[in-house]
């Protein structure tokens, strides 16, 4: 059964990766990455890394991808133009480079002569990959990387707040909210507010007062 699951999951992972790299709409790319992550979690399960598989689905496919979806929705789905700015030569060159890298890495990995690569791995020990064993390793042998990772997360959270805040050093001066333009009619011109005695309760029109700026009430008074 394991080979069937392996090929299903790896085909899903590679197809999802291909979708991320080639789909034109960023929103679809995010959805392709979610399917890629779920397929990758299945591969992790086949490698008996249960805790990492669960963390992958919960943290990555659940939380980080929601962040992506929010930002894609905020920035707007900007569909890329078909032609790359660097010309078609750059695109073809990049694809050739990626293919050459794949061949080189495959030769390096599969031709490395490690005996374990052609085996199914070490014999399975009970408790391998469970949260208990991972947690024990994290809190004893790898305590310093664990603390460094938590400090890195703190710095990233502070940095994101500084980068994305509304007012501050990153904002340009011309980005202030547009002022409300005063479209108020002068008194005595027959507006609806006058009809209910709002502006000119005495009824007679004082032209001189209407033409002076003081006749127009201040914005705080008008907004009652």
């Amino acid at each position: 059964m394991a080979p069937v699951f392996f090929f299903l999951a790896s085909i899903g992972a590679i197809a999802g990766a291909f979708g991320v790299a080639t789909l034109r709409n960023p929103f679809y790319s995010v959805l392709a990455l979610v399917s890629h992550l779920v397929a990758l979690a299945a591969l992790f399960l086949l490698l008996r890394a249960e805790f990492i598989a669960a963390a992958q689905v919960v943290v990555y496919a659940g939380a980080v991808m929601v962040l992506y979806v929010f930002v894609v929705a905020y920035v707007g789905n900007q569909v890329e133009p078909v032609r790359a700015a660097g010309g078609p030569g750059l695109k073809v060159g990049s694809v050739i480079f990626a293919g050459a890298l794949a061949v080189e890495l495959l030769i390096a990995v599969l031709g490395s002569g490690l005996k374990g690569i052609d085996s199914k791995g070490a014999p399975y020990a009970p408790g391998f990959g469970t949260p208990a064993s991972i947690g024990e390793l994290l809190l004893t042998r790898f305590l310093f990387p664990f603390e460094a990772a938590s400090f890195l997360l703190l710095m990233a959270a502070v940095g994101a707040v500084v980068l994305a805040r509304r007012r501050g050093g990153l904002e340009a001066a011309d980005e202030a909210e547009p002022q409300r333009i005063d479209f108020r009619l002068p008194p005595g011109s027959g507006s609806m507010a006058e009809g209910v005695g709002d502006i000119n309760p005495t009824g007679h029109l004082d032209v001189r007062a209407a033409l002076t700026p003081a006749a127009v009430p201040a914005p705080e008074e008008r907004d009652r």
Binding site: S10, A13, A102, L105, L110, S119, K120
Partner: peptide, 17 residues
């Protein structure tokens, strides 16, 4: 499945990225 198969999938995904 042998470990080499998983490494092959890893290489392919890395190069697509």
């Amino acid at each position: 499945m042998n470990i080499g198969w998983y490494l092959t999938v890893s290489v392919i995904v890395f190069c697509i990225g």
